[in-house]
């Protein structure tokens, strides 16, 4: 008899909800766990509500967008015999992204796709030719499709010269913000085993060193994480920035990849929190 999934927990974060449960015993053998999802009500355990299948005792329901949304889940154990256990249920709400605020600057759309960027979806071999001195992007003048590449390489990337790469984003503010703005960096994918680290700075002042989550190492080849059966593993970094590092006039936000390999951009921006 297939067991009911035990200890099912759902946790929301920006644009995704993580589900975890207790692994079933080795016997009887499990084929997979089927995860069903719906908004506004508990899902039916039928193909139309299937969010995914996994052999692992966890599942990330991703690409849920920047707004805070509540999802309901049912998870079913499917045995090697095809027998199905009774469904267990859980619910969670995503955390609203800073990207829902008023943009002070943004490059790309926070839509789980990186197809609007230069060299996308798989032109990283031309990176050194197109961006020999890194990226220096001026808001209102530069354009994503020519001036911001879809991949940000790191020192582990032979195709990018095995060195650190700094991306600079220049933007104008009429006045320094009163409250701390929010920084949002969304990625369609990262390297699986060496996603690396990067230094985030504003106007020359280091804010923090970002540690990237491991992805699927597929984002160098394709850039749409909303495609059904996508192998991409999106991730995000969001944090408040101190208001006092900003100034009226030109501001510079820099992200320098100092360790590891590439990340693939979905969008990057700074937002006033409203």
């Amino acid at each position: 008899m297939a067991q009911t999934v035990r200890e099912l927990r759902a946790t929301g974060r920006v644009a995704a909800i993580d589900l975890r449960w207790e692994r079933a015993p080795w016997e009887p053998p499990v084929d997979h766990y089927a995860v069903y999802a719906a908004r506004g009500r508990a899902p039916e355990t039928e193909p139309g509500a299937l969010a995914g299948k996994t052999v692992y005792p966890h599942f990330t329901h991703g690409v849920l967008g920047p707004e805070a949304v509540t999802w309901h889940y049912r998870v079913v154990t499917v045995l090697a015999s095809g027998e199905r256990g009774r469904a267990a249920g859980a619910s969670a709400t995503t955390v609203a992204s800073y990207a829902t605020g008023r943009p002070l600057v943004a490059v790309g759309s926070f839509d789980h796709k990186g197809l609007e960027f230069a060299l996308a979806p798989n032109g990283n071999a031309r990176y050194l030719t197109a961006f020999p001195a890194g990226v220096d992007y001026r808001d209102g003048v530069s354009r994503p499709e020519t001036d911001w590449p879809y991949l940000h390489p790191g020192p582990a990337d032979q195709w990018a010269g095995r060195r650190a790469h700094r991306f600079t984003l220049r933007f104008e503010l009429d006045a320094a913000p009163v409250a701390d703005p929010g920084f949002a960096l969304w990625m369609t994918d990262t390297h699986a085993t060496i996603p690396g680290r990067g230094v985030l700075a504003v106007n020359g002042r280091k804010i923090t060193t970002l540690t990237f989550e491991g992805g699927a190492t597929k984002g160098s080849l394709e850039g749409d994480a909303t495609r059904p059966n996508t192998p991409l593993v999106p991730s995000s970094v969001e944090l408040p920035l101190p208001a006092d590092v900003f100034r009226a006039g030109e501001n510079l936000l820099t992200l320098e990849k100092t360790e590891g390999s590439w990340h693939a951009y979905d969008a990057i921006g700074v937002f006033a929190r409203e």
Partner: peptide, 19 residues
């Protein structure tokens, strides 16, 4: 796994693959 799957998870995948 060279793709970053944790060992305790990868064992589950290997089990179904061998089966």
């Amino acid at each position: 796994s060279r793709y970053g799957t944790p060992p305790e998870d990868f064992a589950l995948r290997r089990a179904v693959a061998y089966r």
